[in-house]
């Protein structure tokens, strides 16, 4: 149990100390860490991220707490995983803001810092897009394996290779368009898509 707590704490501390951008941008790193530590498969991560997105507060913090709890619960450790998730997020944040921020405020406009950010932003866009593709694959939307295919979906295959599931694609397309064209709050999007899912996949 101590080992699991340690793994979780280190994972979230690393996440909090090295991931730039916050929110959904932290998801790819979380995904990778959980997978390489063999703690949780990516399909489950999407569900916890959904709950994190519906809860108040920071999405990244919510996802960390939710995943910490989920991992400890399914491993028979009760709710103890909340503690390392909480500390793993809080401690680096406190340290960085108190120690780094006081002088970072002065060097923020420095050309070197701006150059580093120039390289960081497009790379982070690429990494986040990768996380979206990865979650689409594990959720049965795109190029799925036999174990992840949604049975009630409209699945398109080519020579026994799954290509895409059309119902999910429709929800994705409408959701993405709404996000682009309107200022719709993510929480309404999540709740509405849940209701749509009940009808779309239930009948």
């Amino acid at each position: 149990m101590m080992q699991m707590m340690n793994t979780l704490f280190l994972m979230f501390a690393k996440l909090s100390a090295f991931s730039f951008g916050g929110g959904y941008v932290m998801i790819p790193i979380m995904l990778r860490e959980l997978e390489s530590n063999r703690l949780l498969d990516p399909a489950k991560v999407t569900d916890i991220v959904a709950i994190a997105g519906m809860s108040p507060g920071s999405v990244a913090v919510n996802a960390a707490v939710g995943l910490g709890y989920y991992v400890s619960k399914i491993n028979g450790m009760g709710a103890w995983g909340v503690l390392p998730a909480f500390l793993g997020i809080a401690l680096p944040c406190a340290t960085i803001v108190i120690v780094v921020a006081s002088f970072f405020f002065k060097i923020y406009k420095h050309p070197r810092v701006q150059s580093a950010l120039y390289g960081l932003r497009p790379a982070i866009a690429g990494i986040v897009l990768y996380a979206a593709v990865k979650l689409a694959k594990s959720g049965g939307m795109l190029l799925s394996g036999a174990d992840t295919v949604i049975p009630s979906g409209w699945n398109i295959s080519y020579r026994l290779h799954h290509i895409i599931e059309l119902k999910s694609l429709a929800v994705f397309a409408v959701a993405f368009l709404l996000l682009m064209k309107t200022k719709l709050h993510p929480i309404f999007l999540i709740i509405t898509s849940g209701v749509v899912g009940i009808f779309l996949f239930g009948f």
Partner: peptide
Amino acid sequence: NAMNGIRPAIIALITFAAYKI
């Protein structure tokens, strides 16, 4: 079934985050 509907919406949110950055 609700989760089947929510997952693509979450993926849209993540894709949108990538788009904005």
